[in-house]
Structures are given as structure tokens and as C-alpha cells.
């Protein structure tokens, strides 16, 4: 299932850009119980998020299930106006997704 992603890039001083990325993802820890069936809900969370600038990885984020659902992750990368920032993620069930945006 395709999950929607939103990206926001804010330009900072000294060639640094703040990249904010929101992924629509349940982020199940694997510790929660279904209230009706009393069964544990299996873990399902994003494990890796890569922030690429012009095809080169600038930041590599590993996440645990303890990140809130629909995670909003922010990092600072070196990027100038016109550079392309690509965010790609993968979760523990093998789902992946990516989004691209140019630095304003």
C-alpha cells in the first residue's frame, strides 16, 4: 500500500537546509494489545530513513517503534537552492517509499 509522504524544506544559513518529512505510517511497537481479541498487534514500524542530496546520502536515520505514529522527522543537511533532496524509507515488513523535492 502506498503511504502518503509530505516534505518541507526550509533554507537556513551557511548552505544548510532543514528537511522535514512526514510519513503516514502506523509505527506499531509490537507491545500493544488488540482490545477485542487480546492478541498482540505485530510490530510494524519504519526502520530506516535516508536523506539524499543530489543522489548522495547526507543523513541516515534509524528508527525504533518508539517513534510516534505518522512520524515527522527533521534533519539538517548541506544543500543549496536548486538541489534535489530525496527521502526514502523502509520498514520491518519490507515496505518502502520515497519522495523528492527541490530546495527553494
Amino acid at each position: 500500500m502506498a503511504r502518503t509522504m509530505k516534505m518541507k524544506i526550509k533554507k537556513k544559513d551557511n548552505g544548510i537546509a532543514e528537511v522535514l518529512c512526514l510519513v503516514n505510517h502506523p509505527m506499531e511497537t509490537g507491545l500493544r494489545k488488540d482490545k477485542k481479541t487480546k492478541q498482540l498487534i505485530p510490530a510494524h514500524h519504519i526502520q530506516k530513513m535516508l536523506f539524499d542530496v543530489n543522489g548522495k546520502t547526507a543523513a541516515d536515520v534509524s528508527l525504533a517503534g518508539s517513534i510516534s505514529k505518522n512520524p515527522l522527522i527533521g534533519v539538517h543537511v548541506k544543500a543549496n537552492s536548486g538541489d534535489t533532496v530525496k527521502v526514502s524509507w523502509s520498514d520491518n515488513k519490507g515496505e518502502t517509499g520515497s519522495a523528492e523535492k527541490k530546495v527553494p
Partner: peptide, 24 residues
């Protein structure tokens, strides 16, 4: 938290900055 580690960030080209929302 039952598994304490929430996030690890490897920075190869940027500033040390990370923001997120976590469960506690």
C-alpha cells in the same frame, strides 16, 4: 521505555540536528 533506543542518526553531509515525536 521497554526498548530504550528511539533513534540513531548518521550524518555524512550536514549539521547535527534531529527532530521527531516519540512515544513514552
Amino acid at each position: 521505555n521497554s526498548s530504550p533506543l528511539a533513534a540513531v542518526v548518521d550524518i555524512s553531509d550536514g549539521e547535527p540536528f534531529f527532530s521527531a515525536r516519540v512515544k513514552m
